[in-house]
């Protein structure tokens, strides 16, 4: 997103500079109408208060900013990774109010008041989260790029099992979900690992789910 801003044509830049002095005062309707009149649209900023890992951050953000980009670029929380940036790989998975989501496919301005947890909020090198420790123990990664997303996803996924959410492979929709490898694999299918460490990832998650960690 930041990169695309840099690719503006000279003409767009001139239009933007001329408009930027007044844009914040512009009511939404006027801004939208001027945009639809075919002129380049100036960036729009909005104030947002984000609570991340227990800390409140008062920010002024371009409305286009994804939650992912704000975590990485503004808050220097680089643990959350940008893989595909289209919700296909799961590297950007974070927890919002305890639920796992793709932070690339949500706007930061939509998360005022939410409790956001990233990998940095789950554990530290001195005090690993049980899933972090299990991933280390089971060698649940090679390059490590997908790992923060895998771990955040696993935390959310185990909470879903705990809450009784069924999955595509649950034989009985009304029974309590099992903690089988098939269940874990299906429920983790939104997290891709280019290195193919899946077998060890399943083992690590199974350990924690069974309380061995």
């Amino acid at each position: 997103m930041e990169a695309s801003n840099l690719k503006l044509s000279r003409r767009e830049l001139l239009v933007m500079s001329a408009a930027s002095a007044t844009m914040m005062a512009m009511p939404a309707v006027a801004a939208a109408q001027s945009a639809s009149a075919g002129r380049a649209r100036p960036p729009v900023n909005a104030p947002v208060a984000l609570r991340v890992n227990g800390h409140l951050h008062e920010l002024e953000l371009d409305t286009r900013s994804s939650l992912l980009d704000v975590l990485r670029e503004r808050l220097q929380l680089g643990g959350t990774k940008k893989g595909c940036d289209h919700g296909q790989c799961g590297a950007c998975t974070v927890l919002v109010n305890g639920r796992r989501i793709n932070s690339c496919l949500t706007l930061a301005v939509m998360h005022q008041g939410d409790e956001i947890t990233t990998i940095e909020g789950l554990g530290t090198p001195q005090r690993l989260h049980p899933l972090q420790a299990a991933f280390v123990r089971h060698d649940g990664y090679q390059c490590g790029y997908c790992t923060p997303g895998q771990i955040c996803s696993a935390v959310g996924m185990l909470a879903e099992i705990e809450a009784g959410v069924p999955s595509h492979v649950s034989a009985d929709l009304e029974a309590r979900p099992l903690l089988s490898a098939a269940e874990i694999r299906e429920r983790m299918s939104g997290n891709l690992c280019r290195c193919g460490a899946y077998a060890n990832i399943v083992d690590a998650i199974t350990d924690v789910a069974e309380g061995k960690a």
Partner: peptide, 26 residues
């Protein structure tokens, strides 16, 4: 995950669970 949907409209629960990923369904 709704108990009524799982009991009374399992075709709907099954269809939902067959789509996308856990993160996207959330």
């Amino acid at each position: 995950a709704d108990a009524r949907v799982r009991r009374d409209y399992p075709v709907l629960a099954r269809a939902l669970l067959a789509g996308a990923s856990g993160q996207l369904r959330n």
